[in-house]
């Protein structure tokens, strides 16, 4: 099996997904090379061959440009599998490359068993083993699914890729996340509200519990998208990453993007009416209850302690 691993670089920095790419390569076995549109001054820690295209010349991510560069390398390497991370870069670029290669794409792979790629279904409640029937496979890996705890030492053997490319999309600039507001990373206890709170008025009971426990309140994305809580309180891939002593997830199903932001918490309590909610997989305690009943009672008891 010959793999081509696609690393990521943005705005002058390598993005931290090497551990997943290399972890997957190790699991699958076989040889691998790597592709990156990046910069010679910031090479990834990788002991193999690296095809490098210059991000200064080719600009920030432009799908058609990166597709052309990657196809050029694929033409030279003839990999059996082209491996991306399931990230804003990977899920944008992978289908374009797959279509050009007449390859099947399997997205958000969490495991590799036999020759099957395993993917989650329905918010990770179920799993599906997928068999590919094309010569080449394109995959995107779920963040953290294969991560090596430590990257092997190494310096890449660089081969520059260069060609004239053209894109249709005009890049206008980055917008950084809004700064200020609460710093959840300092809180020892975080009580988070999910869509299960039902209505904005119920946020009050979440913040009261947080206060009773001497902590802060956080939120899942839908609560922030509905403007019931400010963005600085969002926990997850597109919000904050937290690791408090205790994290209480109220009415949160446990989508992978939420888990990514809180799974390093020391102790996780989940309050959910759905006993099968995926949050139960990582919770130390799952309380199967209606939060609108349970949370105020809990706050009252704790306050009275």
């Amino acid at each position: 099996m010959k793999l081509l691993l696609v690393a990521e670089y943005r705005d002058g920095a390598l993005l931290g997904n090497m551990a997943d790419l290399l972890g997957f390569a190790e699991k699958v076995g076989g040889n691998h090379t790597m592709f990156l549109v990046g910069n010679n001054s910031k090479l990834p820690q990788y002991g193999g061959k690296l095809y490098l295209a210059d991000s200064v010349k080719h600009g920030e991510y432009n799908p058609a440009v990166h597709k052309q560069l990657l196809l050029e390398v694929i033409g030279k390497e003839n990999p059996d599998m082209v491996v991306f991370c399931h990230s804003s870069y990977g899920w944008d670029l992978a289908p374009r490359v797959a279509w050009a290669l007449k390859a099947a794409q399997v997205s958000e792979v969490v495991d590799y068993v036999g020759t099957n790629l395993v993917v989650p279904v329905c918010n990770a409640k179920m799993r599906r083993d997928v068999q590919v029937t094309t010569a080449v496979t394109v995959t995107t890996l779920q963040a953290g699914a294969f991560g090596l705890s430590e990257l092997p030492a190494g310096t890449p053997d660089v081969e520059i890729v260069d060609m004239d490319t053209q894109g249709q999309i005009e890049f206008l600039g980055y917008e950084e996340a809004a700064a200020g507001g609460v710093d959840l990373s300092k809180a020892e206890v975080i009580v988070s509200a999910g869509r299960g709170i039902g209505k904005p008025g119920n946020l009050e009971m979440i913040s009261s519990l947080a206060k009773a426990l001497g902590g802060e309140y956080g939120a899942s994305r839908p609560v922030v998208d509905s403007e019931w809580a400010e963005h600085t309180r969002q926990v997850g891939t597109t919000g904050q990453t937290v690791s408090p002593k205790v994290y209480v997830a109220c009415g949160i199903s446990g989508a992978i993007q939420h888990l990514a932001g809180m799974k390093k918490s020391e102790f996780v309590v989940a309050v959910n009416t759905d006993k099968e909610a995926p949050i139960g997989d990582i919770a130390d305690v799952l309380v199967v209850a209606d939060l609108t009943q349970f949370v105020p009672m809990l706050t009252e008891k704790i306050t009275a302690l």
Binding site: K102, A103, A104, V106, N116, V121, A124, K125, M126, R127, R128, D129, V130, Q131, V132, T133, T134, K275, G280, D281, I282, A283, D284, V285, L286, V287, V288, A289, D290, Q293, F294, M297, L298, K301
Partner: peptide
Amino acid sequence: RQQTAKMYFPEKKGGGMVLEGEPADLV
């Protein structure tokens, strides 16, 4: 270009505690 070989429930990881019953007892 691909097909599903099998669909199933993942094995439950870790032994998280599950509390069920009357809210007052759960508290």
